Computed example of a mutant assay.
Amino acid sequence: MLTQRQRLVALAAAVTFALGACGQATDDTTPGGTPSASPSDDATTSSPSEEDTMKPSPIEPDNPDAGALPTGPVPESVTSRPEVVAAVEDYAKRRDVAVEDVTIAGFAEVTWSDGSIGCPEPGMMYTQALVPGLQLVLEVDGELASYHAADGQPFFYCASPIAPAEGGNPAN
């Protein structure tokens, strides 16, 4: 029979192992919690450089994982939100254009299917729970970009978006 101390040690070891298997949080994460490349990354890995992650890539309309992006008129009550203004400024910087050249092409209240907030990174593990959030679609020169957020969190750029869970609530 195990003593109370032995049970506590075993429990602590199990929790430590479980948390270690979930990944390691570092200061090298983006606002969405995804890892960013660091100078110490092994040169043989295929991790993108910080410069590469700053460059937006157009969303392919035939990408089945992206789903239909929520486009359409967006009320001024949404466009004037500080987190939306910050996302517009971020996209203008990424595209090297004036803020006025960025159009808010769509917005929706959504439910993300897991903790990746619709922007999973290869090799990462995420909580497997529905996450209420938002999706913002910005446009410059006909190219769309998807910005994602969990409720109460700032938007972050998602280069390879996947569709929210079924039953999300479009806010358009």
Rank of each mutant, 00 (worst) to 15 (best):
N63A: 05
A145N: 00
F107T: 04
P35H: 15
G106Q: 00
D27H: 14
G167K: 02
P56S: 01
A150N: 13
P73L: 14
S40A: 15
D141H: 01
N172L: 09
V74K: 01
P31N: 05
P170D: 07
G118Y: 00
T3R: 01
R81V: 11
E51N: 13
E139R: 04
L19S: 08
T103R: 14
D101G: 04
D101F: 04
Q24A: 08
A12C: 07
G167F: 06
L144E: 00
S57Y: 02
Y147L: 08
T16R: 08
E51T: 06
P73S: 14
P73D: 12
P39W: 10
A13Y: 03
S38H: 11
S47H: 06
H148N: 15
C158W: 01
E76A: 10
P39N: 13
D41V: 12
A108F: 03
M124V: 03
Y147H: 00
V84D: 00
P75N: 03
V110L: 04
Q24M: 08
E76I: 09
A87D: 02
F155R: 05
F155P: 04
T79P: 03
D151S: 12
G152E: 06
R7I: 02
I117S: 05
P31H: 12
A108W: 03
N63K: 02
P170F: 10
F17C: 06
G167L: 07
Y157A: 11
E50H: 13
K55W: 11
G118R: 04
E139F: 01
